[in-house]
Design a binder for these strands. Structure first.
Lengths: 121, 121
DNA sequence: TGGTTATTTGGTTATATTACCAAATGTAAA
DNA sequence: TTTACATTTGGTAATATAACCAAATAACCA
């Protein structure tokens, strides 16, 4: 890879990286429903303020979200709604994986209840 | 986030994580043009065989690519072409970022040649 | 069988990411 | 101006990633 091409792929990777964390993915989807201040994200996530704040700054730095200070609060919003459009593709990948693993189990003639929590990872 | 919800977001994040590396992103796009064996990826990337092989296994583990051994070679292919569809969105994000930074520069009345390599990161 | 090619695996080291706590900042209300 | 609230920043420790080298495996050919 040439240097210039590498720069481009690093820039692209940065967007993926920003979304490559369960908490940040959750935040992105939440913001897809409308803007939200940090406080209102902290509680449902069950994480520290500072942790959530840092996740938000990663998303902001990547250009995925926007922030706006109004009064004492900072309101974050999803800047690029198209990221949500990718989720159905991601869910397809996950479904495929589950299907394959269920297939494997069946081929091995192991019967039993298969919980999604067993397969997703 | 409840445990089950967390599992789902971790599964989604895994897909993003798999693509969140310049090399792996490059590989995904390359495979979008057709299957390819490891050997043919190593040279243009300029990385070690083992490095490329490990990147491929991350992509495979995430369900993004498929592998098939034929003779001495292993052919990798893009299993989920929809990931490529997301790239235009990613490029939008990058373009926005560039536009904003150029805007910043102009507002600061700093003139000069702005190279994409300066801004992309 | 023994050698050659293609790829993967294991080990190691360097770097990056994440979470939490404590302290700092900024804003508004008393 | 003091106080309280909302958020960010800095520090630190634990864990995860990434790159390379060396060695192992696997498939084919002589």
């Amino acid at each position: 890879m040439k240097k210039e091409e590498k720069n481009l792929y690093e820039a692209k990777a940065k967007i993926f990286k920003a979304l490559a964390h369960p908490t940040r993915l959750w935040i992105a989807e939440k913001l897809g429903q409308g803007e939200c201040c940090v406080n209102n994200l902290v509680e449902p996530l069950g994480a520290d303020f500072s942790t959530v704040s840092k996740h938000l700054s990663v998303l902001k730095e990547a250009g995925v979200v926007d922030d706006e200070k109004r009064g004492k609060q900072v309101f974050y919003s999803l800047k690029v709604p198209c990221v949500l459009g990718f989720m159905s593709c991601v869910e397809d990948v996950i479904e495929n994986r589950i299907r394959e693993q269920v297939g494997l189990l069946n081929r091995r003639k192991i019967d039993g209840v298969v919980k999604s929590s067993d397969i997703l990872r």
